[in-house]
C-alpha cells in the first residue's frame, strides 16, 4: 500500500468502516510511514475533540416539561 491508497482509506480507517483485510493493510502502512501516522493521529484527535466539545449541554427544563405534556 502506498500513501495515496492509505490517505484514500484513512477516513474509513478512523471510522472503523473498512473490512478486516483493508484495516490490516492500512495499519501496516501506518506503522512504517510517520507522515501518514501523523495525519491519522490528527484525524483521531479531531474526531475526539469535536465529539467532546459538541456533546455538551442539556435541553432547557421548560422544553422537557412541555414535551412531557405533549408525549404523555
Amino acid at each position: 500500500m502506498n500513501c495515496t491508497d492509505c490517505l484514500e482509506k484513512l477516513d474509513r480507517y478512523v471510522d472503523r468502516e473498512l473490512t478486516d483485510e483493508e484495516l490490516e493493510d492500512v495499519k501496516r502502512h501506518l506503522e512504517d510511514c510517520p507522515p501518514c501516522e501523523d495525519l491519522y493521529r490528527l484525524q483521531v484527535n479531531m474526531r475526539r475533540v469535536v465529539k467532546v466539545c459538541c456533546d455538551q449541554g442539556v435541553a432547557p427544563e421548560h422544553l422537557r416539561s412541555r414535551l412531557r405534556e405533549i408525549l404523555f
Binding site: 455538551q56 449541554g57 442539556v58 435541553a59 422544553l63 408525549l71
Partner: peptide, 10 residues
C-alpha cells in the same frame, strides 16, 4: 423518545 431529548436538542 424522551430519552433522546438532550441529544436532539444539542
Amino acid at each position: 423518545a424522551i430519552q433522546h431529548l438532550d441529544t436532539l436538542y444539542r
